[in-house]
Computed example of a mutant assay.
Amino acid sequence: MKKVLAINSGSSSFKYKLFTFPNEEVIASGIADRVGLKNAVFKIKLANGREYINNTHIPDQEAAVNLLIKSLKQYHVIDSLTELAGIGHRVVNGGEIFKDSTIIDQAKLQQIYDLADLAPLHNIPEANGIKAFMQILPNVPQVAVFDTSFHQTLDPVHYLYSIPYSYYEDYGIRKYGAHGTSVDYVVKRAAKLMGINHNIINLIVCHLGSGASITAVKGGKSYDTSMGFSPLAGVTMGTRSGDLDPTVVQRLMDKAGMSIDEVINVLNHKSGVLGISGVSSDMRDLIESKEKNAKLARRIFINRVVRYIGAYIAELGHIDGIVFTAGVGEHDPGIRAGVMSAFKYIGLEPDYKANQTDGEKFLSKPNSKVKALIVPTNEELMIARDVMRLTRQQ
């Protein structure tokens, strides 16, 4: 039996899950949080449900990795590092260089760093995480799994912007998409639940979390997607504006005296439902809030999701289903109901009673021509599967 670690690194944290193969069971999971900051914490949860929390100083990613390996041994999750078939790392943007997951060497690691301008908030901490694991576990394969890989099937009609073509050739300005690892899992799982071969299924996947994207899936492959050159594009999000007339940036620079970096910071961190509501980026807070713009923010969020789904229905010609996943998609019945209600005209018959609870399920009535369902995402499992595929351990 082989074991695979799946890692999701942030600027001051990394989440992890340890799987066994071929049964794909999670035998440990947790987080190293506030790495390099005060009040750092390391958590590990075992298969028996026991959780251990260590409040300790974690100065850097390398220290966090050492603490993880020590904990896995301490709690007898692994006895030897030879049990590890590999370690998989989520990387947000692989540009046009990485069309599939790949085993990382020093040259490929540098390429991930070089792509940082496409995802500056993500690629650098993710590359730092890979580097730390490579230093501590040099004999264990490190595999990068890119969110953009699933969207490599986009046609130029869908990924090019209507600007001089030379900007694409010279600077790589195009739509790259995001959340591909999540969408890939959701498509395959939804197809199984619906009894349709995933290679012929047409779906619209709504990955709705703090970051949100809508993906049109044709024949099991990405056909179009809402996020663009960066994760800032597309629908309204928790703190991101989504699609915006670019002259708004010029207006803010001229009238508010802001620099381009300040404007982009606002669009990334102070906009979205937070900016509209003035209350929170969390949908749960908006439900409880009595502020007049809290409900407006939720209505705008639903509207932007509906717009993209409607456009993608037109592009695909027909769809088999609409799938909700990620934090908001899996846990906010009000958002789901608002979206589903807009598509009764295509034969979607919402089951509003089923919609009141969470968990993997159908949200449409049995005779509904177009299905709606919740599929909880599992990016870590997809990462672990790619490790097994690339290290030929299956």
Rank of each mutant, 00 (worst) to 15 (best):
A233M: 00
N202G: 11
M194W: 04
H179G: 12
A191E: 06
L203P: 14
M237K: 12
Y176R: 03
M194N: 07
N197Y: 00
M237P: 14
T247M: 11
F146L: 06
L154W: 02
S166M: 12
D155Y: 08
M253A: 11
R251G: 05
H207R: 09
L208T: 09
C206R: 01
S230V: 00
G177E: 05
D184K: 14
Y159I: 05
D224Y: 06
D155C: 10
P164H: 03
G211Y: 09
L232A: 03
V157Q: 15
Y159D: 00
E169G: 02
L203N: 04
D224A: 12
P156G: 05
L244G: 09
Q250D: 13
T247N: 11
Y165N: 09
Y159V: 02
A144Q: 03
Y161W: 02
G211V: 11
V205D: 13
V187M: 07
D224N: 13
A216F: 07
D170T: 12
G209K: 04
T148F: 00
D245H: 02
D147E: 07
A233P: 00
S162Q: 11
L154N: 07
G211M: 10
K188C: 12
S222F: 08
N197C: 08
C206E: 08
T181L: 01
I173C: 11
D184G: 08
G219V: 04
H207Y: 06
L203S: 10
V183C: 14
G209M: 07
D243H: 02
T148G: 04
F150H: 07
Y159E: 01
P246S: 08
I214V: 15
D170F: 00
S149Y: 01
F229W: 03
R189G: 05
S230F: 00
T181I: 15
S241C: 15
H207G: 10
R251M: 14
V183K: 04
G180S: 10
F150A: 06
V249Q: 06
R251N: 12
L244V: 14
F229H: 07
L160E: 04
I163H: 01
V186Y: 02
Y167G: 03
K188L: 10
S222V: 04
H158V: 01
T247R: 08
S222A: 09
Y167Q: 08
H179A: 14
A191W: 03
L232F: 03
V186A: 02
R189S: 11
D224P: 05
I204W: 07
G172H: 05
I201D: 07
H207T: 09
A190S: 15
G242R: 01
G228N: 03
T239S: 13
T225F: 03
D147A: 04
